[in-house]
């Protein structure tokens, strides 16, 4: 993710300015937001308030008096660029902002992949199952030995698998379609389902990976005895499809399932990186 400074926009209709026409204001708000700008709307009859964040500010308004090109905001000394938008349509405002980036030493927001996990620490028990399950090193261990989302951009789009394996329903994907993964309240049946998931894992001997590998090996042995490659492939496809459906895992993720040894090694490394002790 780009760390370039963002330009904060103020749509100013306060004291010393004339209000924007309603359709222009609405269209400007929409286009600014969809172009990745945060916008503070300062309404008629009010004044500037403290603005969130840091970095330069562009104040767009129909000013009644000439404004300096650039000034400093009170208190935090952020550079403030005044842009008179009299007679401009929203497209013209955006063009003006694009030109302003060079002077303000800012950059337009880059495209962003809206997919990463968020931990509900009111539920998380720090069991590290998400860390061991995730294939893409999204998770790490903090210095105080807590699970953390360390590399959110590594997350595989549309893969909520870590959330599905979390026994406490503590991992959210806010852009996910369904609850409780999307942050919806957790109902009793969600908890029951999660408990069943853990019980199933226990029934498989506590190591679902070993069970899967054993199942795969058994199937291979059986089918090699039968010398029916087509049937073997069909069965494998059926098993994988069932897993994908049950856990909502993209096929490429399932195909890259690591071995138990690899998983344990990854957890040990993460604990060491976080300054923690290796798991028993």
């Amino acid at each position: 993710m780009s760390n370039a400074r963002a330009l904060r926009i103020v749509l100013y209709e306060g004291l010393g300015s004339r209000p924007l026409d309603a359709p222009v204001r609405l269209a400007a708000l929409r286009q600014l937001l969809e172009s990745g700008y945060g916008v503070t709307r300062v309404a008629t009859g009010t004044g500037m308030a403290a603005l969130p964040g840091e970095g330069p500010i562009a104040v767009l308004g129909r000013f009644e008096q000439a404004q300096p090109g650039v000034a400093e905001s009170h208190g935090d000394g952020r550079p403030v660029f005044f842009c008179n938008v009299e007679g401009l349509e929203p497209d013209g405002m955006l063009r003006g902002l694009e030109e302003l980036h060079a002077r303000a030493n800012t950059a337009p927001r880059a495209k962003w992949k809206p997919w990463f996990p968020v931990i509900d620490f009111s539920r998380c028990t720090n069991c590290m199952q998400c860390l061991t399950f995730c294939l893409f090193d999204v998770y790490g261990v903090s210095k105080d030995k807590k699970i953390e989302v360390r590399n959110p951009t590594n997350c595989k789009t549309d893969c909520p698998a870590c959330s599905r394996v979390c026994p406490e329903v503590a991992i959210l994907f806010p852009k996910y379609k369904g609850g409780p993964i999307n942050g919806d309240e957790i109902r009793d049946e969600d908890l029951h389902r999660e408990k069943m998931k853990v019980d199933i894992s226990a029934l498989l001997g506590g190591d679902i990976y070993a069970a899967l590998r054993q199942r795969s090996a058994d199937a291979q042995a059986r089918f090699s005895r039968e010398r029916d490659e087509k049937r073997a492939l069909d069965e494998r496809r059926k098993c994988l499809t069932k897993l994908q459906q049950d856990l909502g895992i993209p096929p490429e993720v399932l195909a890259a399932l690591p071995s138990l040894d690899q998983i344990q090694a990854k957890t040990a490394r993460a604990m060491a990186d976080g300054g923690g002790e290796e798991p028993l």
Partner: peptide, 24 residues
């Protein structure tokens, strides 16, 4: 919101701000 006479903050996407740890 736009038609109202109130001041407000609007952000493109809270998730993106969170992922970027935006101080705002």
């Amino acid at each position: 919101l736009s038609a109202s006479g109130v001041s407000f903050e609007a952000v493109p996407d809270l998730c993106e701000m969170s992922a970027r740890r935006d101080p705002g």
